[in-house]
Design a binder for these strands. Sequence first.
DNA 1: ATCAAGATTACCT
DNA 2: GGTAATCTTGATA
Length: 203
Amino acid sequence: MSSLLNGAKLKRNFYTRDVLTVAKELLGKILVHNVRGQILAGKIVEVEAYDGKIDKAAHSYVGRTKRNEIMFNEGGYLYVYLSYGVHYCCNVVTGVKDHGTAVLIRAVEPVEGIERMIKNRYGKKQVTEKEMFNLTSGPGKVCMAMEINIKHSGLDLLGDKIFILNRRKVKEEMIGVSKRIGISKSAHLPWRFFIKHNPYLSR
DNA sequence: ATCAAGATTACCT
DNA sequence: GGTAATCTTGATA
């Protein structure tokens, strides 16, 4: 018998590599949140890379602050921040300690705990097809559906609360590349990666 | 102290 | 297409 959630958890050496490599390879992997035994899970379909060394759009570009200090951990930790004072966005810290790089999870395709995600997002049980594809198609939506908030910032992804399951690499020809969305500084960098034609993309 | 911008989203016309 | 909601940060005073 096979499960949608079989496979091994990604290990430290996956995360401690270069942020662009990790960003691309996170596509197709399964983000899992264990909420007291109830599993919320989604396949990562859209990400963006941020590198505080050279990227003015990265929170870490200005150096350490109370908000961004988690970004300076070694790879494999969760960095969550409040966007526009309204929505949470979750990132996977990458690279070596003190580098200040992370990958923003912009969209996932729901895999498990879908009814609970629908309740988290819409407060009801029945949804239209349009609402279904709007469930996790943006960074704030992912966090709302998967119950990820500021209290989870700093969590070790090698732990049992929030983690990522390995999957085979998405084929290069299936990966789309573009400029990042919603930023004005360092806007030209082609650091958004996504699985082409996936219906859960943010746009 | 005050202010403007920001890795977003939902709702309005 | 436009904009309100609402918190953190950094710049200016």
